[in-house]
């Protein structure tokens, strides 16, 4: 007994002393990392815990764990809300149009830019097309609401050309709202989206183009048979990543560009969650909606990735 305990003592303190010693030696690194680990626990993991709110009848005074269990009640409520199909339709349509345009237009732009020789024109073009990405959506909304406003230059032009005699109400028409939003967002991000494609195109082996030229291959055919297949991995990757956003139509566009007259077409999950959750205090319900949105996003990435892997051999994982 005595011996056993003494050997125990003999081993343990040494181990502990090494840990203490390491800790002492690395105290500076601890000082430089532990505050940030705490920050991660609070601000990255804290909200993950908050998802539980969707399953309880949340009472701010009792906290999440003290509140009464509600199970899937709020999820059922969501599907019983008569507005929900409208909101889901808007969300999916707005994000689908944007995913489509944010994959196609930047690719076309990148193909066009890469056909221009290096020089002043190319640099100027890149400079002006990237700029809107850095401007806030508030500014962009402000500009486009004015440009396409009743008295804006677009309406003036249309009237000047004699195409209409009455101003076109671009922002008051719920039938074209989705396309207007897609147009504004595409304008803002087209240049930025082209950067990755441009980099991919630049890394294509130039000898292939030389060989194609000797074989009498035109530029469109070179694009179709060399450029596109070479950058297919990049195209696939961006497409899969973008699919995560299928249930995420973006708060900014709907909130800033929508109005009472287009509400039927502009309300999306994000604005719905904001209105119910923060303005009206329906915490549990809006968290449930939010959780569904996130889960569907994950599912879509998974599905597109599987399809991409089957069809093209390229995938995210």
């Amino acid at each position: 007994m005595n011996i056993a305990s003494s050997t125990n003592h003999a081993v343990r303190p040494v181990k502990r002393r090494t840990l203490w010693k390491t800790m002492y030696q690395q105290r500076c690194l601890m000082l430089m990392s532990i505050p940030f680990l705490i920050w991660i626990f609070i601000f990255e993991f804290g909200p993950m815990f908050g998802w539980l709110m969707a399953f309880v009848q949340y009472d701010p005074n009792k906290g999440i764990l003290g509140s009464q269990w509600a199970g899937l009640r709020y999820f059922k409520m969501f599907f019983q809300d008569p507005d929900i199909w409208l909101i889901l339709r808007n969300t999916v349509m707005i994000s689908f149009l944007y995913i489509l345009s944010s994959n196609v237009f930047p690719l076309i732009l990148a193909l066009m830019i890469s056909e221009v020789g290096d020089g002043y024109f190319k640099r100027a073009l890149q400079t002006v097309t990237y700029l809107p990405h850095f401007v806030s959506f508030v500014v962009v909304a402000n500009i486009f609401l004015t440009l396409f406003g009743m008295r804006g230059p677009v309406n003036e032009l249309l009237r000047g050309l004699g195409w209409t005699d009455r101003p076109v109400l671009f922002w008051q028409d719920k039938n074209i709202f989705w396309y207007m939003v897609t147009f504004v967002r595409s304008w803002k991000e087209i240049g930025w989206g082209a950067i990755i494609y441009l980099a991919a195109i630049a890394s294509v082996d130039q000898e292939m183009y030389e060989a194609a030229k000797i074989d009498g291959c035109g530029r469109f055919r070179a694009m179709w048979h060399i450029t596109i297949p070479s950058i297919l991995p990049t195209i696939t990757l961006l497409w899969v990543l973008n699919m995560a956003g299928i249930f995420n139509a973006g708060f900014d566009a709907s909130y800033l560009l929508g109005n009472a007259m287009t509400r039927e077409a502009s309300q999306v999950i994000d604005t719905y969650v904001y209105e119910l959750g923060i303005s009206m205090g329906m915490y549990s319900f809006s968290t449930a909606v939010n959780l569904l949105q996130t889960a569907v996003g994950f599912a879509f990435v998974f599905i597109t990735n599987t399809i991409a892997r089957k069809l093209t051999d390229y995938s995210l994982w």
Binding site: I40, I42, F43, E44, F45, G46, P47, M48, F49, G50, W51, M53, P60, D270, V273, Y274, G277, I278, Y283, S286, T287, N290, L291, Q293, T294
Partner: peptide
């Protein structure tokens, strides 16, 4: 996996 929706962040 970190972060969360608007409402969990708001409550935090």
């Amino acid at each position: 996996l970190g972060g969360g929706g608007l409402i969990p962040v708001y409550m935090l």
